Simulated assay, not measured.
Amino acid sequence: MSPGHHHSYYLTDRERVIELNWPPQPQTHRMSLKGRVIRLLRNGPHPGPPEVNVDPEAFGAAVKVLERQDVEVAINAFTSLGYEVTVRAPR
């Protein structure tokens, strides 16, 4: 599996859904230097697409951790890759 903008995994042992979302690209409208600094401090940098910015091997390693049902370690791994991670109960 390769990095993408959205992934969803169902963990059968934990009965939880793990959703990965790549942060959206920033708006391209012109902004003052002060506005850029404030946005950077508040939201952090906005990366480009995950296909370019995420190492496929690191993504695969994080998926393997998730397949072992180790949720906490997997969340840390995906977060460090730049994904926003949501854990929820299945519908």
Rank of each mutant, 00 (worst) to 15 (best):
M1L: 12
P3D: 09
G4Q: 14
H7K: 13
S8Q: 15
S8H: 15
Y10M: 07
L11A: 06
L11M: 07
D13C: 05
E15R: 15
R16K: 15
R16Y: 03
V17A: 04
V17N: 00
P23M: 03
Q25Y: 10
Q25D: 12
Q25R: 15
P26H: 00
Q27T: 12
T28P: 03
H29M: 04
K34N: 08
K34R: 14
R36W: 05
V37M: 13
I38H: 10
L40Q: 09
L40C: 01
R42W: 09
N43E: 14
N43S: 07
P45G: 08
G48S: 10
G48H: 04
G48A: 07
P49Y: 01
P50Q: 06
V52Y: 07
V52K: 11
V54I: 14
V54A: 07
P56W: 12
A58I: 01
A62N: 01
A62R: 02
A62L: 02
V63C: 05
V63P: 00
L66A: 08
E67M: 09
D70C: 05
V71S: 02
E72P: 00
E72I: 09
E72Q: 12
V73K: 09
A74W: 03
A74C: 04
N76E: 13
N76Q: 12
A77R: 11
T79Y: 00
L81Y: 03
L81Q: 06
G82L: 02
E84M: 07
E84P: 00
V85S: 10
T86C: 08
A89R: 12
P90D: 01
